[in-house]
């Protein structure tokens, strides 16, 4: 018997990741639902405003749609991987997969492509809502830049998600780590609030980490003041650099074994073992 083709294996793995995600109401709400709700909310609150930049003013509606779409992509990749990987690791699910003949690279590709699929769904919903309800115009000439920016961003944040997931000590602390790393950055990254003339140090923090460069690059593909093709390579270079760091860290931090202070089941087993050893 021959091995199933890599393409078929990757397809099955991606399907598996998307299916398990779609059946997790909490993940679905925070990743897809909440940003859509924020788009509605922000537009209701600030919808008739403008964002003033040196290049000119553009509508808040377009600003928010682009920013929240990018934020959705980051939630679907980084936040979800930081949350889900340690849970499955501590439940012993990663170890179970490691016991099967699936090549580890295929398994990890499944995680990344699953996250990418969810990000794609979230971004498409976000943009659709923007076009239908908030006068968002998508410039066909800038769609290639939008797609490339999306793919690079999603890949980089998926790599960072796997890297941080490997560093998270156990599933209990995963949500805290995910939120503590992404939420403060989101406030200084032109997602919830357009930063007009922020203090220098806030600007700097935003520029150093990959979230704001990605968000700004994505927003630029929707910004009427930016001409086609709409690539923002200097900012995307920051995202790519972080993605490379993510890959390097993930390679050494990723573990298939439940963490030593892992799930309750594991703790119980260990304490039993310890008492028997004594």
């Amino acid at each position: 018997m021959n091995w199933p083709s890599t393409l078929k294996l990757v397809g099955e793995q991606t399907r598996y990741q998307v299916l398990t995600f779609m059946r997790s109401p909490v993940g679905l709400f925070f990743t897809i639902g909440l940003p859509l709700f924020m788009l509605v909310l922000f537009n209701a609150l600030f919808g008739d405003g403008t964002v003033d930049t040196p290049a000119g003013s553009w509508s808040v509606q377009q600003f928010y749609t682009g920013g929240l779409a990018a934020f959705t992509a980051v939630s679907a990749t980084y936040t979800n991987l930081v949350n889900m990987v340690p849970i499955r690791r501590d439940d012993g699910i990663l170890k179970r997969w490691r016991s099967t003949p699936i090549p580890p690279s295929v398994y990890l590709t499944g995680w990344i492509l699953g996250a990418l699929s969810i990000a794609l769904l979230g971004v498409v919903l976000q943009l659709t809502l923007g076009v239908v309800a908030y006068d968002l115009t998508i410039d066909v000439a800038k769609v290639p830049a939008m797609v490339v920016t999306f793919v690079i961003g999603v890949a980089a944040f998926a790599a960072l998600g796997l890297a941080v997931a490997g560093l998270v000590p156990n599933a209990d602390s995963a949500p805290a780590v995910a939120n503590a790393t992404i939420l403060p950055l989101a406030f200084v990254s032109d997602i919830f609030i357009p930063l007009e003339n922020p203090p220098r140090w806030l600007d700097l923090i935003g520029d150093i980490f990959p979230l704001k460069p990605f968000v700004n690059s994505f927003q630029n593909t929707l910004n009427p003041l930016v001409d086609a093709p709409g690539f923002t390579w200097d900012k995307m270079a920051v995202v790519i650099a972080w993605g490379i760091v993510g890959v390097a860290v993930a390679r050494s931090s990723f573990s298939w074994e439940p963490s030593t202070s892992g799930s309750r089941r594991d703790r119980r087993r260990r304490s039993r073992t310890t008492s028997a050893a004594i």
């Binding site: 018997m1 021959n2 091995w3 199933p4 078929k8 294996l9 099955e12 793995q13 399907r15 598996y16 299916l19 398990t20 059946r23 997790s24 499955r88 439940d91 012993g92 699910i93 170890k95 179970r96 997969w97 016991s99 099967t100 003949p101 699936i102 295929v106 439940p258 089941r265 594991d266 087993r269």
Partner: peptide, 26 residues
């Protein structure tokens, strides 16, 4: 391998779990 402490994806049905895990064997 039938491991002592390994979970299975609770969101899946038995059929789905067997399909996904089975798909990587020859």
């Amino acid at each position: 391998i039938v491991l002592q402490s390994s979970g299975v994806e609770q969101q899946l049905t038995i059929r789905e779990a067997l399909r996904f895990y089975g798909s990587c064997y020859r």
